[in-house]
């Protein structure tokens, strides 16, 4: 038997493991890599984390509820491309404008969110109504979503979004661009929803034991469908931010981000078994990946090392997840 004090300490460490790892990694990099310890570098890590950080919110919510969403990367690209085609001035862009010009910000955001929500709703229909496996349904959406991006753009790119949108990528607050703050704010908002509202509480319960949740009168199907739509809309938000950052969209925009997001979510402590995870932890996972990528860049190593290391990290993260489970079991 473990004393309750010691158990509380161990639980705390296990719950916040990713933060400890992040601090350790940043310390080691700062001490060993020349020029790593700079405000500019840290600001850059936060900036890099914008898109994966945003995508990770929706994916985390769904995995916590016991489902999977592989479509987020393509949904992000689709939303970015739709925004690019409508509002960019050259390439395949149609260059729609408004008076006053700033109206493009809310309108393009609403369009990006709607595109994402629509794909999310289609996923929800297949998973919740037709009881299909979410892995397969969202894998299909991952494929057709990217196909749609290529089809819409004809493989070409859209360039030059209006300055009103670019503003969010250019202007900085505390050295960090506004769009990175948007990602942080979204993380905080959804962290609050997950921890402090009945919706979030019920999501955790569905991930833990859907039968019990159903028996207790929780509307499991409606909640699950809502979460798929939310995850889609959040991916749409990521696409909007990415379009702003790249001032347009290309057909292969964001390829590979799904696996980075997946890695970050698992590293951030979300259990693939469902029912366990916190969004600040996931954001720490995103920061951890970006820190490592930055270290690799600074050391002048070829970029493909990043992939090797990230692949290894996913394995380590899943291993940690399993180990944490067995430690907790021994504590109980």
């Amino acid at each position: 038997m473990v004393s309750s004090n010691r158990r509380a300490v161990i639980e705390f460490v296990l719950d916040h493991l990713v933060w400890f790892i992040l601090i350790a990694v940043l310390t080691v990099f700062s001490l060993t890599i020349p020029n790593y310890f700079q405000i500019g570098i840290f600001a850059n890590i936060v900036e890099q984390s914008t898109f994966v950080g945003t995508l990770a919110i929706g994916l985390s919510l769904l995995i916590i509820a016991g489902y999977m969403d592989l479509s987020i990367e393509s949904v992000m690209a689709l939303a970015a491309m739709v925004v690019g085609i409508l509002f960019a001035k050259s390439g395949v862009g149609l260059g729609f404008g408004f008076t006053p010009a700033w109206l493009v910000v809310p309108i393009s955001l609403a369009i990006a969110l709607s595109v994402g929500a629509a794909v999310g709703a289609s996923n929800a229909f297949f998973v919740v109504r037709l009881k299909m496996n979410s892995f397969i349904v969202t894998l299909a959406a991952y494929i057709w979503g990217r196909g749609l991006v290529v089809a819409l753009s004809g493989g070409r790119s859209a360039q030059e979004l209006p300055g009103e949108l670019r503003f969010l990528a250019v202007e900085r607050f505390l050295q960090i661009p506004l769009m990175a703050w948007i990602a942080i704010l979204a993380t905080l908002v959804f962290a609050f929803i997950l921890n402090r509202t009945p919706f979030g509480r019920h999501l955790l319960m569905i991930g833990g034991n859907p039968t019990a949740a159903y028996r207790a009168g929780i509307k499991v199907d409606r909640l699950t469908a809502t979460t798929f739509v939310l995850a889609g809309a959040i991916a749409g938000l990521a696409g909007w931010l990415l379009a702003i950052r790249t001032s347009g969209a290309t057909a292969n925009l964001g390829v590979g981000m799904l696996f980075q997001t997946f890695a970050a979510v698992v590293i951030g402590g979300v259990s693939l078994k469902g029912g366990v995870g916190s969004l600040p932890g996931v954001y720490a996972g995103v920061l951890l990946l970006a820190s490592i990528q930055t270290a690799i860049n600074l050391m002048g190593m070829p970029a493909h090392f990043t992939q090797l290391i990230q692949g290894g990290m996913v394995l380590v993260a899943v291993l940690l997840d399993t180990m944490k489970l067995s430690i907790r079991k021994r504590l109980a």
Binding site: G208, N209, A212, A213, R215, G275
Partner: peptide, 11 residues
């Protein structure tokens, strides 16, 4: 069957 073991007693 009717408990969610991943959340606390109050929940």
């Amino acid at each position: 069957l009717s408990l969610c073991t991943n959340v606390d007693v109050v929940a």
